[in-house]
Design a protein around this nucleic acid. Sequence first.
DNA 1: TTGAAAGCGCTAACAG
DNA 2: CTGTTAGCGCTTTCAA
Lengths: 341, 341
Amino acid sequence: MKQSKKHAITIQDVAKAAGVSVSTVSRVLNERVDVAQDTQERILSVIGELGYTSNLAARSMRSRHTNLIGLIIPDIGHPYSLEIMKGVNRAIAESEYSLMVYTTGDVQKHSTADHEQHYVSLLNNSITDGVIVVAPVASQFVSDAPIVSVDPHKQKRGYPSVHATNYQGARDAIQYLIGLGHTRIGFIAGRPELESAERRLRGYRDVLTEAGIGIDEDLIVQGDFTLKVGAQCAHKLFELPNPPTAIFAGNDQAALGVYEAAAEKGLRIPEDFSLIGFDNIPEAKYLGLTTVDQFLSEMGFIATKMLIRMIHDEELEEETIQIPTELLVRNSCKSLVSLVV
Amino acid sequence: MKQSKKHAITIQDVAKAAGVSVSTVSRVLNERVDVAQDTQERILSVIGELGYTSNLAARSMRSRHTNLIGLIIPDIGHPYSLEIMKGVNRAIAESEYSLMVYTTGDVQKHSTADHEQHYVSLLNNSITDGVIVVAPVASQFVSDAPIVSVDPHKQKRGYPSVHATNYQGARDAIQYLIGLGHTRIGFIAGRPELESAERRLRGYRDVLTEAGIGIDEDLIVQGDFTLKVGAQCAHKLFELPNPPTAIFAGNDQAALGVYEAAAEKGLRIPEDFSLIGFDNIPEAKYLGLTTVDQFLSEMGFIATKMLIRMIHDEELEEETIQIPTELLVRNSCKSLVSLVV
DNA sequence: TTGAAAGCGCTAACAG
DNA sequence: CTGTTAGCGCTTTCAA
């Protein structure tokens, strides 16, 4: 209501309208106490009238305190990312921070260490108080503000990260299947370059060996964490002369692939065989399959809590948290999340 | 490698290291052509070595060009939001822009017009070139940068918005059910204060009236777009002396509620009755239910494309786009998305 | 209790 | 082709 419509209202406009200096307005904005009661009220009411919102860019530049947390996440549309975001969101909701999710749209094109570092710098050197990086391939990050990584591709040092206990989760899952009486358990492996996939496989091998059942290499097929290849893998397993009576799918998409392959063959889960999948699978509830579940969201939650503690300058000690996470559908096995500094 | 570790590398550091002035570095950064070849190369290599990333805050403050689009969305964890984000993401991926998703964590606590305006100002007055506001309750926004809204609660003027053709979609759905031979079709309504819910109901009433079937008010029950209440509504319908042979659920969650209620009663879909739902329902694929689908993602996509055109200063004319969106599962009816300026 | 003034890192004239 | 300079809107000493 003042002058050019094109120009946003600044702290100057507020100061002028309230008949004070900008520094006084700034003090009110930052909830300093050393401002006279009536001055404060006047400024506040002017702010309300003018609909002033402080310029984030300018504020970030001057003060190292934006109350903004950045989340750098590969593919916003992927269920994996979504679950983690949910957990982050939960932690954000009960904090004084707001969340800025940064994504570049396409997983394939941007998941390089260079890009990750770029986004970390972009956010942390400017508008965020700290960032969470999900599933980074980068080993190191240069940043003056705190960083936490979630589910990094490879075990790394230098900054804290939250890991799923993939090994223990897979162990629990296989033990659960053995408890059901299965001895021929198929395994659809994930992308071998990922530490998580490798650990799940190791859990499978170890439990089967320990149980005296032994490993039949024909029962281990190489998937890639996609539904399509998961279905192909399942077909391979079903065509075996001596097919498995249960399948452990490396992740959610693979599990759905198995489900579709089973449906094609007219098999029913869990009547004809047992299917257990890793990662969150919303459909599991209706499809009768068992999942090692909820840990994605939990990882996001823990990472966010940690980051906030770091921002508050609480020095993190070398520590490990273990958080039990129930299986969603119908059993007693547990998955865990661990924190590694 | 220069001085205090705590301090991020600035354009000054780069200039010093390259033996040029900051403005020259800035020119290279902004891909100006009027820089000598060798100077440019030298600066670029220094940037690489130092791992310099330009300060977003500072850059935003000086130039109206951040290549960042803001998405203001109520609840990141809700399937509704997710679908829209997917569409936005798709459009972002094929553009030169990056996406900044802004959420405050909790739908209930923050979905007020004031908050919406606050976030619009926060982003648009500082770091974004434009914003997309999803499901706003606010009627107007003050902002110097472009705004597009998606699926606003009430029809509003002043800025462009993308609407689902809820009326036509509901019409198509009901016609589809009539085509299947149904005459007693239950309707689970959504929150009555939302225009979308009201339009769907109107589509239902109109088609039934036009078809000469007439309206049985007992078949219309008041839901609230949640699974729990959806299930209760379904129970109410099933308990009717003359229960419906088909149910149209106002949205995805309600449809799942109906599914669960049906499962409890031992009913099977679609053998025992037909169930059709609005909004994206991933589970639909496995549950045999029909959906009016994909339009959420489409709305996000269109809104983003529009916003980018607006940022590029292409004046938007009064126009309407109609985009046919197939039903997901098994039929021929279509839903549409329209654009209103 | 308040104001004046100095920058934060960057871009964009304007000179050279 | 390149350097100098003046701010963008804000916070923060330092005085008054």
